[in-house]
C-alpha cells in the first residue's frame, strides 16, 4: 500500500517531465581481471559539455585525468558548465571485478551521461562513456564501456613513480603490485594524437627486463572493460 503513491508519482514524473530532470541510480562494474580504475567521474550534461570526444585531441583536463587519474580539472570544467556530477564514488581505486554505486539527480537540460576513469597500469588509457542520452522512460539500462587512449602520451609501458603529471612519460602506478621493472620501453612515440580506442597493453614475460614493465598474462584486456547499469526512477 505504501509503495502505490510512490509508483504513481514516478509514472507522472516520467510522462510529464520527459527528457528533463531525472533521478538515477548508477552501478559501475570493473569487468577486467587485471586493471584498476582511478577515481571515477560521472557527469550529466548538456549536448556541448562532453568529457571527451573520440577522433578529437584530448583537452588538458582529460589528459590530466588519463595520465595521472587527477579529476580536478574535469570537475572544474563540469561545474562551470552547470553539469551534475558524482566524483569518486568508489572512494579511491575500483579493483578488478569490483563494483561501485552512485546516485545522481540531474537538472533540466542535462540529458546526457558521461563517465571517465583512468586505467592502471596504462600510460594514458581510460574507461569512457561519451554522451549517452538518458532515457525518459523509467527502467534499468545496461551499457558496456570500452577502453580509450587519450592520445597524449606514448605507451612505453614503463612504471615510473611520479609520472602522473601531464607530459611526464610513464605509468604512475601498478596498484595490483604485479608489474615488473627495468623495461627498455615499448615505444617512445604516439602516432595517433586523437582520442581513440586503446590498442591494449602489450606487456612481456620478463618482469626484470624486456620491453615492458607490464605482465602480458595479467595486464592485457579485451573490450568491454566495464558494465554500467543505470536505473532511471
Amino acid at each position: 500500500m505504501k509503495a502505490l503513491p510512490l509508483t504513481l508519482f514516478a509514472a507522472c514524473a516520467v510522462t510529464s517531465l520527459a527528457s528533463q530532470a531525472a533521478e538515477l541510480d548508477i552501478k559501475l562494474t570493473n569487468l577486467t581481471q587485471g586493471l584498476h580504475f582511478t577515481p571515477i567521474l560521472i557527469t550529466a550534461h548538456n549536448s556541448d559539455s562532453k568529457l571527451f570526444s573520440v577522433a578529437m585531441p584530448a583537452s588538458t583536463a582529460l589528459q590530466t585525468m588519463a595520465e595521472g587519474g587527477n579529476l580536478e580539472p574535469l570537475m572544474t570544467e563540469a561545474t562551470a558548465a552547470n553539469s551534475d556530477m558524482v566524483a569518486n564514488p568508489a572512494e579511491g581505486l575500483l579493483a578488478p571485478a569490483s563494483s561501485t554505486m552512485a546516485s545522481l539527480s540531474t537538472k533540466d537540460g542535462n540529458n546526457y551521461l558521461s563517465l571517465t576513469a583512468m586505467l592502471l597500469p596504462t600510460n594514458d588509457g581510460f574507461v569512457g562513456l561519451d554522451s549517452w542520452m538518458i532515457p525518459a522512460e523509467a527502467g534499468t539500462y545496461t551499457i558496456y564501456l570500452n577502453a580509450y587512449d587519450a592520445g597524449t602520451e606514448a605507451n612505453d609501458e614503463l612504471v615510473v613513480e611520479g609520472s602522473g603529471m601531464p607530459g611526464t612519460p610513464g605509468i604512475p602506478a601498478a596498484p595490483g603490485g604485479n608489474a615488473g621493472m627495468n623495461g627498455s620501453g615499448v615505444t617512445s612515440s604516439e602516432t595517433n594524437m586523437m582520442v581513440h580506442i586503446h590498442p591494449g597493453n602489450l606487456g612481456d614475460d620478463d618482469l626484470e627486463a624486456g620491453m615492458s614493465d607490464l605482465d602480458n598474462t595479467v595486464h592485457r584486456w579485451l573490450n568491454p572493460v566495464a558494465m554500467l547499469t543505470v536505473t532511471v526512477k
Binding site: 581481471q33 602489450l202 606487456g203 602480458n216 598474462t217 595486464h219 592485457r220 584486456w221 579485451l222 573490450n223
Partner: peptide, 30 residues
C-alpha cells in the same frame, strides 16, 4: 584471483609469452 571477470585474451608464443603452447591461431576477441 578467485573471482569471475572478463578474460584478457590469450597471449601465445607468437606474441611474447615464451612458455606458451598456444600460437597466434588461438587468439580470440569478443
Amino acid at each position: 584471483i578467485n573471482r569471475v571477470a572478463m578474460h584478457p585474451g590469450v597471449v601465445s608464443q607468437d606474441d611474447g609469452l615464451t612458455n606458451s603452447v598456444l600460437t597466434s591461431q588461438h587468439k580470440f576477441d569478443n
